[in-house]
Amino acid sequence: METTTPPPDYSLTMDQCWALLDAEVVGRVALIVDSHPEIFPVNFVLERRAIIFRTSGGTKLWGAITGKPVAFEIDGYDAHEETAWSVMARGEAELIENQADRDAADALLLEPWQPGAKPYYVRVAPKALTGRRFKVNRPDVWTTRLSDQRRATFE
């Protein structure tokens, strides 16, 4: 019988997850649209332990406010530490209709990147927040794509 050592636990604490979320400006929101998953990049801010993004009327807005579960994800790579990380929030989305709440998001500099009107503010209040960080394999400089971020350690 072969035994293997389980991998170490690389889980991030809730506070670490919130800190990583707070340091980023772009994430991906996953929604159920027409009975299948769709993923949309969004810029966002954190306000009172909630993720807020703006959108126009359309697929993203409809998917966010239909009462189905949503997920929000960010990830990154630290070339100096040679570690990668990922944070996943799961919960429900709601349309922010209160002007004071919209003003609070605007005060945090929630400004859309894409041109055009983005009059709808959406809040994702996580019911679950998880994350992990792990050491990445050192790349083989000769066979790794030039765009691979891990190469920065050697260049």
Rank of each mutant, 00 (worst) to 15 (best):
L108W: 00
P126I: 02
R28N: 14
P69V: 12
K127P: 00
L20C: 08
L61V: 01
I39G: 01
E94W: 00
R150D: 06
V87N: 02
F72G: 05
P37Y: 13
K118C: 13
L12Y: 03
I96S: 04
K127A: 06
D148W: 10
N98E: 10
A71T: 10
M1N: 07
R54N: 00
I96F: 04
D101H: 06
H36T: 15
T13F: 07
A152Q: 15
A84P: 00
G67K: 09
P112K: 04
D78W: 07
R28L: 10
I96V: 15
K118I: 06
R123N: 04
W113G: 13
F134P: 01
Q16V: 07
H80T: 15
G57S: 10
D101K: 03
P126K: 02
L109A: 10
G63M: 06
F40L: 08
M1I: 12
R48M: 07
T13H: 11
T130L: 05
L21D: 09
D15R: 14
E82M: 15
L31M: 04
L21M: 07
K127I: 01
E24A: 14
R133P: 07
D148S: 09
D78S: 09
L20W: 12
P7V: 10
F134I: 00
R49N: 10
V70P: 00
V33E: 08
A71V: 01
E111L: 11
D101T: 10
K60H: 02
Q114G: 10
W113T: 13
W85F: 11
D9W: 08
I32H: 09
N137W: 02
A23I: 00
